[in-house]
Simulated scan of single mutants.
Amino acid sequence: MKDDMTTLREAFGPDPVPPPDAHDRARAALLHRMEGGAPAHHVRHRRRWPLRVALTAAAAAAAVIGVVAVENIGTVDDSGKGYSTVGLPFPKPASAAEVLTNAAWAAKKRPWTDPRPDQFMYNEDRELRNELAYEREHPNGYIIPGHTRTITRQEWKRIDAQVMATNESGKLEVYHQGQGIQWGQLNYDELRKLNTPAKVLAWDKADKNFGVRLDALLGQYVLPPAVEAAFYGALAQGDDVRLNPDAVNIDGRPAIGLGKVLEGYLSQELLFDPQTYRIIGERLVAIADHHDTDEHGNDVFTPKGAVLRQAVYTKAIIVDKVGDTQ
């Protein structure tokens, strides 16, 4: 099996060889991000977080993972202006397609001004994680109620893809293209043209150099309202998105879960507010009991209902510079 760095080199072609210490730092960061934020030296035996899609990096890169976020939660936007949910296409949606149609309708209600190339997409979320000591011993473990912590993550990506920054637990890291680090970022001018479901589906089938799932991309980028709506419309045309029949509670609020079944027992879900149909989070939950084995051959049991990942999306807005959150 090829290692991560070999695969990245083949995908992007040859790059100048970085110094050994830069290579080591980049590899550690890549493993850290791709494995859902666990300490880099605890490499997970199985990848558990399929919603979190890495932005593929070149050989000297520190890859950055975005997460699904929402610009305006509830019925008030960041400017303090309210909006009405009167006119929802489906007041009582009975299928995933109907929920996504409502989500597309709600997305179009967002105020929007096209960003300049020197502005940034800002994403912020709060992820529920196990206590650190337990997480280090059980990096693949499901969330243990009553023994958790909340991690706040912030990410800034400049529209022209020349600057990127992350902040987790108060540690701000700023990266510049061409200074020993490169990362993959989809062309924003190309994204803003995807304003119909048909265009999104055609684009999704085309070669983009690195794969990004449509549902995951919704959290990695701050898209114009018409584009976000088009992505929901494209997802609604798929036959593999299921409406979770069980009530979901996230951050003290009810939510509608839409997901895809993975490995026969996991539901990878986007979460929507049942009143406003704004996206408010994501989770990975077991929908059936499951037995597996770890790298040592030991039995690993995951009970039905266990949550393996949960994140609340708090912001996805355009800002002027790294550090801006409003």
Rank of each mutant, 00 (worst) to 15 (best):
H138Y: 10
R116S: 11
G141F: 01
N140T: 02
Y122C: 12
P93V: 11
T113R: 14
Q119S: 00
T101R: 12
M121H: 08
S95V: 07
P117C: 02
K92N: 13
R129D: 00
A97N: 06
E98V: 05
N140I: 00
T101N: 11
D114A: 15
R126N: 06
W105T: 09
P139F: 15
N140S: 05
Y122K: 12
D125H: 06
F90W: 14
K108V: 06
A94S: 12
Y122N: 15
S95L: 05
P115Y: 07
R136M: 04
L128N: 03
R116F: 06
L132P: 03
R129E: 00
Y142T: 10
R126S: 07
K109W: 10
V99E: 11
P111A: 10
V99I: 15
P115L: 05
R126L: 04
D118Q: 13
P93S: 12
R136G: 02
K108D: 11
R129Y: 00
N140Q: 04
A96M: 10
Y142Q: 08
E131S: 07
R126M: 04
K109I: 05
N123H: 08
Y134G: 04
M121D: 05
V99S: 13
K92C: 09
D125R: 07
K109L: 13
D118H: 10
N130W: 00
D118Y: 07
D118I: 06
A133D: 11
M121C: 02
A97M: 06
Q119K: 01
Y142D: 09
R110G: 09
W112Y: 05
E131Y: 06
K109E: 01
G141V: 01
A103C: 10
E131F: 04
D118N: 15
